[in-house]
Design a protein around this nucleic acid. Sequence first.
RNA 1: GGCGAGGUAGCUCAGCUGGUUUAGAGCGGCGGAUUCAUAACCCGCAGGUCGAGGGUUCGAGUCCCUCCCUCGCCA
Length: 544
Amino acid sequence: MPPEPYYITTPIYYVNDRPHIGHCYTTVVADVAARFARLLGRDVFFLTGTDEHAEKVVTTARERGLTPRQWSDANAAEFRRAFRLMEVAESDFMRTSEDRHKTRASAYIKRLMDSGDVYLGDYVGWFDASQEEYLTETVAKEHGFNSPVTGKPLEKRTEKNYFFRLSKYEDRLRAHFDARPEFVLPEARRNEVLGRLRQGLNDVPVSRAVKEGDEDWGILMPGDPGHRVYVWIEALCNYLTAVDEPERRKYWPATVHVMAKDILWFHAVIWPAMLMALGEPLPRTVYAHAYFVAEGRKMSKSLGNFIEIDLLEAYGRRYSIDAVRWYLATQGPLGATDADFAHARFVEVYNADLANGIGNCASRVGNMIEKYFGGQIPEEGGWGEIAFDLGFHRTGSEVDSEVADWLENFEQFDLSSALACGTAIATNIDLLINRTQPFKIAKQIENDVALRVVLAQILKHCAEAIRIASLLLYPAMPAKMASLWRAWNCSPLNDPDDADSGFRAPLAELAEWGGTWSLKPGQRIAKGDPLFMRADPAEPAPTA
RNA sequence: GGCGAGGUAGCUCAGCUGGUUUAGAGCGGCGGAUUCAUAACCCGCAGGUCGAGGGUUCGAGUCCCUCCCUCGCCA
């Protein structure tokens, strides 16, 4: 049975932007989910990329004396660099200016025109002649129907425009929402969309008139060079254009589209309606997370407090990128409410979860195996229950239950709860060590040789539990877990030096307590360097 | 203005259809114990009128009403 495909996407990012925590958060969330799925043995396709056809791209490029192509090449490269830095391993990076996207997107529009779902109509709007742009009714009203920039009166203008017959799909959309509660998540976001859906849907413009002297940038309406496909509409198409080829067709429909809440409407209503019109199946889930704020304050240009990639890079240098990923994945706004990127909080989480948690636990176990068994997994004792009553003879099944919870939480897309299953194992091992006190037993071995078996069993249990915990933590911290696996000679990766090289077996086999992939007697465990050095809360925050 | 979410320990939050207790967890803080470990781990404590007021009920963070506040979506 071939593995079930898992297709996850991020939005394609506006190529004029500088990569910041918002882009990185969405992308890291998708990457973590993709790694969960790969670890489970699914056939994963993970798409991200850049949205390049906005008019502003042309003007910005011109200001810099560059062609739109040159300008977007440079900025798309910045996004790629940011994602390499964040240890993101996408399957493909789609740029909307690529031919493969343009030709396929154009073909979709053509199909919609042929079927009548896209038609030529009259667009009436408030035109700001000084800025050469249309304003929405709301914005126009706000400014007393004068230009927000120059204050000159707006003109009510009518122009020919292509529309998508969104209204036609209102009932089918509603039915889909009813039938698939997981279609839009989290639930609060779903309610918002449903509320708005109840107010009815209007057809939406999908083209912009081509003006004299316009740069050839974008996609022309099929058969009508006087109009260009509106960037939003063609951008949505990227999810399908990227996989609309024979070898990749199996990935459609997408398992989950991840994005921030501001662009939910396009993904939850317009895109699904377009797919219905195209006769394509709909994505299983559209997941809209909330925002990160910075040190308790909303990020804005005026405050100049955007957390840009350079600051995340600085955090990465001091605490490791995996620690940054851990913070994003476990403390981030995956739910409906915003989350805070605060330095004090970062250090607390880093110390509690990583340095004092899994890091310290791996250290103490590695150290004892080094000290008492010469750095080798002892021969004595099996993987069964610990031989005498220490109150903890069910370690194996407790670990199994964490693995089960991990999977369950991942299926709900509750990444932080899933990851917590990994740290929970470490916590239980800390408890086991304190209760069984192997370091005391070690001192009594000379007097009672039988105790050596007990000591061996305890430490084997601890090490095996940590091995399995590390698998559960891998999606958030691929580099650190890969280094632990190297030190312990138990890498499940195809290439132990490459955290992105894929797994030699699915989790069900890898995480089997005492199974094929378990630690073997005689196997060398290097104590190694601490995974996460404890951080000093008093140290000032890193700066970019 | 319309629709929606929410206000629970210092912080982040659990508490589903009302009655497991003297309202919980994690983190932080305080005290203790311990030494295998990264001053880590473990144990104990921390008294929050569950936004305000009123009501229903034998009994309400948990239902109803009013009010205050925060936030989201839309207009």
